[in-house]
C-alpha cells in the first residue's frame, strides 16, 4: 500500500460517516479500490471489510482492479442498442483484445466499459473516449479513433 489512509479517515469522520462517500474518495485518489487499502481502513475504522466490498461490488461506479490509461465507454442505452451498439462493442473488443470478463488490454493501456445510458440518445450510438463524447459511431469510425490513440502512445 503506497498511500496514506489517514486523510481519508479524517474526512470520513468529519463528514457523515458514509461508506459510499469514503469509497468514492479512495477511487478518486487511486483510480480504483485497492484491496489492501480496504483492509487497512477496515482495521482503522473497525468496520468489517465485507461492508466495504458489499458496497463496492453493488455499485457499477466502483472498480476493484486498475483500469487502463484510455477508457473506452460504450453506451448500451436503448437508442444506442437499436442503432448498433453491440456491433460497435464487438469491434472494440476485437481491436483491443479484451472481453467483458477481462476489460483491460494486456499492456494496461485500454479499458473497455459499458454504461447503461449516457442521456445523449439523439446522438446514438455514442462512445466516450476518456470522457469525451463521440456521436453517431460506427465500428469503423471507432476502430480509427482507437488507432489514433494507439499511435499517440507510440509517439
Amino acid at each position: 500500500m503506497n498511500i496514506d489512509i489517514q486523510p481519508f479517515i479524517d474526512r470520513y469522520r468529519a463528514a457523515d460517516g458514509n461508506i459510499i462517500t469514503l469509497l468514492q474518495d479512495i477511487q478518486h485518489e487511486c483510480g480504483y479500490i485497492p484491496e489492501d487499502v480496504v483492509f487497512a481502513l477496515s482495521d482503522a475504522l473497525d468496520i468489517p471489510a465485507s461492508s466495504f466490498f458489499g458496497v463496492a461490488t453493488f455499485y457499477t461506479q466502483f472498480h476493484l482492479h486498475p483500469r487502463g490509461k484510455t477508457i473506452v465507454t460504450a453506451c448500451c442505452g436503448t437508442a444506442c442498442h437499436v442503432k448498433g451498439a453491440e456491433r460497435i462493442i464487438q469491434a472494440a473488443e476485437r481491436e483491443l483484445g479484451v472481453t467483458e470478463e477481462h476489460p483491460t488490454s494486456e499492456d494496461g493501456q485500454f479499458t473497455l466499459e459499458r454504461v447503461a445510458c449516457l442521456g445523449t440518445c439523439s446522438l446514438a450510438p455514442v462512445v466516450l473516449l476518456n470522457g469525451e463524447v463521440h456521436a453517431k459511431m460506427s465500428p469503423d469510425k471507432l476502430r480509427r479513433e482507437i488507432l489514433r490513440f494507439k499511435e499517440a502512445i507510440h509517439d
Binding site: N18, T21, Y59, T60
Partner: peptide, 24 residues
C-alpha cells in the same frame, strides 16, 4: 448526494438506503 450507479436506486426505499451509505 452522488449516486454510484445502480438502477434499483431509482426505487424510493433503495434510494434511501443508498443515501444512508449502504447497498441500495
Amino acid at each position: 448526494k452522488l449516486g454510484a450507479g445502480a438502477f434499483v436506486c431509482g426505487e424510493e426505499t433503495a434510494l434511501i438506503a443508498s443515501i444512508e451509505g449502504e447497498r441500495g
